[in-house]
């Protein structure tokens, strides 16, 4: 899932100051699961705003949609939108932008910092696992992502800095390629570490689009 963190209150307050009628929009998917932007966080943020700015300073509304990254769910906000001067979005960066696209004439302010793609270790505890590099190499790296875990994001490793299982940057940081070596050798396919993965095409880091197989025709038709 996408993991986000609530922004410091001061930052949110500075953004919304001057807007009286603000709709705080939560998202019921990733950010709800990582406890940053579900309906409870919406209610709490609104209470904070009211306490800090006074009931005369702000009158926030609350709405939480299933997913802000789907236009169909954002459409549910249409009837509400005209009552508000601005939006606060508690979704990930994708949802925030889609909300801004849906209501282009109104300011949309982010209330969370979108942090990473990660996993849930325990309630409120998450770990980054993938940098969305676009050329997944997990098949040859024993299911361990070198882009995320290796400080240099090496597709082929380890480098000379590997240090008894740790990375040279510090001993708390595991060496991704050491772990990859361990896992591949435990699975009896260590020879795969010798396969050279071609350098990633980092020019793919401009905004990417994905069309899932089988949907090409449909989308071509949509694009006319």
């Amino acid at each position: 899932m996408i993991v986000a963190e609530r922004k410091p209150f001061e930052e949110i307050k500075a953004m919304v100051s001057g807007y009286k009628k603000v709709l705080t929009v939560g998202c019921g998917t990733c950010v709800a699961v990582c406890l940053a932007g579900g309906s409870k966080e919406v209610a709490t943020l609104n209470a904070e705003l009211e306490l800090a700015l006074g009931k005369d300073g702000i009158s926030p509304g609350a709405a939480t949609v299933e997913r802000q990254c789907d236009m169909e769910f954002l459409a549910e906000l249409d009837p509400l939108a005209e009552q508000y001067d601005a939006f606060i979005s508690m979704a990930c960066g994708a949802g925030i932008q889609f909300l801004a696209e849906r209501f282009p004439d109104k300011p949309v302010f982010p209330a969370v910092n979108t942090s990473f793609i990660g996993v849930n270790l325990d309630v409120g505890w998450y770990e980054e696992k993938c940098r969305a590099c676009g050329t997944c190499v997990l098949g040859t790296t024993g299911g361990i992502c070198p882009v995320t875990m290796c400080a240099k994001s090496l597709f082929n490793g380890p480098c000379g800095g590997t240090n008894n299982g740790s990375c040279e940057i510090n001993t708390d940081q595991p060496c991704a390629w050491y772990r990859i070596h361990e896992r591949l050798s435990a699975q009896g396919r260590l020879e795969q570490i010798m396969e050279i993965s071609p350098a990633n095409d980092w020019s793919n880091q401009k905004p990417r689009k994905i069309i899932q197989p089988g949907y090409e025709e449909r989308i071509k038709a949509l694009q006319g």
């Binding site: 019921g28 998917t29 699961v33 406890l35 579900g38 309906s39 325990d122 309630v123």
Partner: peptide, 12 residues
């Protein structure tokens, strides 16, 4: 309708 099956309740 509201549950997003985040498993928070299950874990707590």
């Amino acid at each position: 309708e509201k549950c997003t099956i985040c498993l928070t309740c299950y874990r707590c």
